[in-house]
Design a protein around this nucleic acid. Sequence first.
DNA 1: TTGTACGCGTTATCAT
DNA 2: ATGATAACGCGTACAA
Lengths: 341, 341
Amino acid sequence: MTRTTLKSLAKALNMSVSTVSKALNDSHEISELTKKRVKEAAAELHYQPNVLAQSLKTGKTQTIGVVLPKMTGPFESQILEGMQHAASVQNYRIVIMNSMENEELEGIALLSMLDKSVDGLLFCPIHENSNVVLAEQIIQKIPVVIFDRTDYPLDTHKVGVLNSEGTYSACKHLFDIGKKNIAIFCGTNQGITAKRLAGYQRAHQDFNIPVVDEYTVYCTVKSIPDLHLEMEGHINRLLHLPNPPEAILCVADTITTHLLGVLAKLEIKVPETLAVMGFANTDLALSLNPSLSTIRQPTKDIGEIAVTKLISLISKPNRSQTAWEDTKLPTSIQLRRSTIG
Amino acid sequence: MTRTTLKSLAKALNMSVSTVSKALNDSHEISELTKKRVKEAAAELHYQPNVLAQSLKTGKTQTIGVVLPKMTGPFESQILEGMQHAASVQNYRIVIMNSMENEELEGIALLSMLDKSVDGLLFCPIHENSNVVLAEQIIQKIPVVIFDRTDYPLDTHKVGVLNSEGTYSACKHLFDIGKKNIAIFCGTNQGITAKRLAGYQRAHQDFNIPVVDEYTVYCTVKSIPDLHLEMEGHINRLLHLPNPPEAILCVADTITTHLLGVLAKLEIKVPETLAVMGFANTDLALSLNPSLSTIRQPTKDIGEIAVTKLISLISKPNRSQTAWEDTKLPTSIQLRRSTIG
DNA sequence: TTGTACGCGTTATCAT
DNA sequence: ATGATAACGCGTACAA
């Protein structure tokens, strides 16, 4: 059982390879009749072009590489699904490399993109200056689009969200329901944290509410059980302040979704004692107890737009003189019982 | 800025392509001195072999394809991460195709695996006889390993879990804490549901507890809000039975994790009125209120083992006379407050 | 309209 | 120990 190649197809048809090739590619210099004959025979013999040979010849692989720090978590998998979908629609495939939040692994992943096996790269850097020189090397050869963690010094298209607006709206909502004292739980990614923190501060300014320094809290721990402990400590400390907060705003998915568990364990009433809301992209927000008010990121859009922009770069002849776009998608807010009882 | 190829490298070194190629591949017929010179020059000029040309020549792509029904949800992304990890360690890359639970899309995805662009396929079929003929065609050309939904008529390695044992242990636990009347909420995948249902029934037999027909419930709906409504209906019906159940066992992740939300809305006490446990692979089980007792699948292992088995098939010369292994990994049970208060 | 010949970048066989 | 050359499967400029 040997593979059908152009050559074998040509032999079976008593024609030359080039005729067959042109016929299959609908060249105008081939008669309709032969085209039809060729295509029928191709279908008959289950001919499939060898994409490797095609790519070697054309220099295009119809493949785009994705390098991202993690792929568990609803946020990441939703982005990946968006990418996967947009890519397959436009006849591209996706190969994923996981940097596992590790700069060295990220370097290896990036390096493997230089071998002509992908037409473009979608990159979510671990932090704002990880592997920058490598990235600059890569972008000399293939187009790159930065997504999610867009605070990265590379001149190219970027696709992320309006981080500061998300926290701003959340604060506004909390103010509206009478919670003026809002603690904010920050995550480990500096660029994103900074943006979201800025929205929090700007909201306070605009509404003339003072920012209490002690309300800004950093959760640095990685494992879930440890995170629970760390958050317990923070909450106990906050509630014993002379002026304890009435709400907690979380700026990272893991922190947000696990906070309710911690509060339940401490038997703190939500939202009466502490209202809770934060960035989170899981369906489960609806099924938590109480259901969780969230700031939701348009993950699928991020993925799809990133892919579309990348593909447009790939097909563009002179990439050098492009005006780079820093696309910031709006977040949206779902109000549920963790803030409005 | 033109790419460094074997040829340009050779020219720079005043040597022939074949010498350079052999030197880089550590052929024994090349002197140490030249090897050293070649390798230095290669590093100097940032030479990277063109993997496409390599693959075209060798027939190996160092790439494995994954076709699976969905990739959101913790279960799927954990499996993917396991695959990704095992693959990269063994110097393979992964390209993912999402069938989106749609048999036609699955067919397209599978078809694209026939073009010599992957060395092997990891396949999680939509259901027990979707695209079987296509799969059989594929396995003629490249090795295939079936994962997760292993109830599929293809002679090859399979990697899944001991589904019936999971529900068996769960029932045993519920019996132990005095909940003899257990309702079971089933999902839409027939093969897996059947296995898990069997474990439920076997447990009842072994412990001499009658199976009540009305306790077996099917949740068929896809969207989360609708699923909530459907489950509400089932629960109301069950609780008005003359002999209402004291526990609910869920056999699909989505059902399990969302059930607590439904019960909270109905203000039903968990675990007092109804204990809850079920298959679920999310970290959030710990942070639900009450925290959720789960049957957990070794997702990372599934992914890693599937990859390892596939790679071993790829490197095996005579695939025809292999003894196919149907690997069933054990599940594990985490007891939390949704059953033991 | 069809066919011939070459090259994409490698690896592998055969000489030297 | 090293070098010339064919081949992998395809696309295409050029010739017929």
